[in-house]
Design a protein around this nucleic acid. Structure first.
Length: 351
DNA sequence: AACTCGGGGGC
DNA sequence: GCCCCAGAGTT
C-alpha cells in the first residue's frame, strides 16, 4: 500500500498548477532543477500574498532583473517603486539586502541548506525550508498556512492557532518524504489552495479523503481553529497634494522603517485620533471634501485631502518636486494612490 | 507570546 | 464587513 506522501505525489503529477516559477513536469522529470534565484523571489513575494496577486510582479521583476546580481545592482527607489501595491514593504527592503549579500559575499550563489538560508534577511522558517526543498531537493519540513490547515484536518487537531503550531509541524514532519521533497511541499500547498480550502473543502475529490480524521468526525469546516483577533481602531490623518505651475508634484520619500517604510507618498500629518495639521509648504490649501479610506493590517484609516496650486519656483519645507515625466502613480503604495486618484481632477489644470 | 506590517479576492 | 493568503521581524 502506498503511503500518504505517495498518494499525494500521484495526485500532484496529474493536478499540479502551472505557475510561472515552476519547472514544467516533463523538464523536471528530465532532471532540470529550478533556479534558486527564481524560487527565492517567488517565495518572498508569496509571503501572505495570493498567487493571483504575485504573478504580474514576478514577471516584471524577472524581466527587469533576470539574476541576483542584476537585482543587487538596482537602485533602492526603483525596486521599492516596482514593489508598490504588493504590500508588506519590509519584504522589498529585505529582498534587496539579501540580494546584495548573495551577490557580494556569496559569489552570486544562494546557500543550499535551510540553516544557512534562514540567516539571510527576509528568509524565515517557512521560506528557508521551501527554498531548500524546492531548489535544492533537501527533505525539509515546509509549513505554511495551507499545510497548517491540511494537517489540522488530517489529524483532527482542535487546539487553536498559534498554540497548535508545534503539533502541526510535528504532524507535517511525520509525512514529509525523503524523495521529491520539493514536489511534496508544493503538492500539499496546491491541495490546500484548490481542494482543502478554508471554506467548503472539496473532500469528495481529495486524495487524502480516506485518511482524514476531520472528515470522519465531520469537523473539517471548523478547522483549523484560531484565537479571536482584536478589533481594528480607526485613525484619522491629513494628506497634502500640491502641484506647481510647471506641473511638478510635491512628493515625499517615507522613512526606511515602519509603516510603508521606504515608499513614496504625499506629505501629511500624523495618523491618530486628532491629527495635527502639517502642511509641507505655505499655500492656500483647500479641503477636497472627500476622504480616502483604507484598511491596514491593524487599523482603519480615514485620510482628509487638502490640495493647492503653487507658483512657479515655489520651495517646500518637506518633500521634493517631481516633474510629471519622473512620476508614475504605480510607484505609490495603494493608500497614496487612492489619495492621488481623488485629488488629481482638482489639480489637472496647473493654474 | 504578542504586535507590527498591505492588499486584494471571496463570500 | 470579515476572512484568508507559499510569514518575517521586533519587542
Amino acid at each position: 500500500m502506498r503511503d500518504a506522501a505517495g498518494d499525494l505525489l500521484a495526485w500532484y503529477d496529474d493536478h499540479a498548477r502551472d505557475l510561472p516559477w515552476r519547472v514544467a513536469p516533463a523538464a523536471r522529470a528530465a532532471g532540470v532543477r529550478p533556479d534558486p534565484y527564481r524560487v527565492w523571489l517567488s517565495e518572498v513575494m508569496l509571503q501572505q500574498t495570493t498567487v493571483a496577486a504575485v504573478k504580474a510582479y514576478y514577471e516584471r521583476f524577472t524581466t527587469l532583473w533576470p539574476d541576483v546580481g542584476a537585482l543587487a545592482a538596482a537602485p533602492d527607489d526603483q525596486v521599492m517603486g516596482e514593489w508598490a501595491g504588493l504590500g508588506y514593504y519590509a519584504r522589498a527592503r529585505n529582498l534587496l539586502k539579501c540580494a546584495r549579500v548573495v551577490a557580494g559575499d556569496l559569489g552570486g550563489r544562494f546557500p543550499g541548506t535551510r540553516e544557512a538560508l534562514v540567516n539571510l534577511p527576509g528568509i524565515g522558517p517557512y521560506t528557508g525550508a521551501a527554498i531548500a526543498a524546492i531548489a535544492f531537493d533537501a527533505p525539509e519540513v515546509v509549513v505554511d498556512g495551507n499545510v497548517e490547515r491540511v494537517m489540522a484536518r488530517l489529524h483532527d487537531i482542535h487546539t487553536p492557532l498559534p498554540a497548535a503550531k508545534p503539533a502541526l509541524v510535528e504532524a507535517a514532519a511525520g509525512l514529509t518524504p525523503v524523495e521529491r521533497p520539493g514536489d511534496y511541499a508544493q503538492a500539499v500547498m496546491d491541495l490546500g489552495a484548490t481542494v482543502c480550502t478554508p471554506k467548503s473543502p472539496a473532500c469528495g475529490i481529495c486524495p487524502w479523503m480516506a485518511r482524514c480524521a476531520a472528515r470522519k468526525a465531520g469537523t473539517q469546516a471548523d478547522l483549523p481553529r484560531k484565537t479571536p483577533k482584536k478589533p481594528k481602531p480607526t485613525r484619522l490623518g491629513i494628506a497634502y497634494v500640491a502641484r506647481r505651475a510647471d506641473g511638478a508634484w510635491l512628493l515625499e520619500r517615507r522613512p526606511g522603517k515602519g509603516l510603508l517604510g521606504g515608499m513614496l507618498g504625499w506629505p501629511g500629518s500624523d495618523w491618530s485620533d486628532a491629527p495635527a495639521p502639517a502642511p509641507p509648504v505655505e499655500a492656500a490649501w483647500r479641503d477636497l471634501g472627500e476622504e480616502a479610506r483604507h484598511t491596514f493590517t491593524h487599523f482603519h484609516l480615514r485620510l482628509a485631502i487638502r490640495v493647492a496650486h503653487l507658483p512657479e519656483g515655489a520651495v517646500a519645507e518637506r518633500g521634493d518636486f517631481r516633474p510629471p515625466a519622473a512620476f508614475r502613480p504605480s510607484e505609490l503604495p495603494t493608500v497614496m494612490r487612492k489619495v492621488f486618484d481623488l485629488a488629481r481632477p482638482a489639480l489637472e489644470n496647473t493654474r
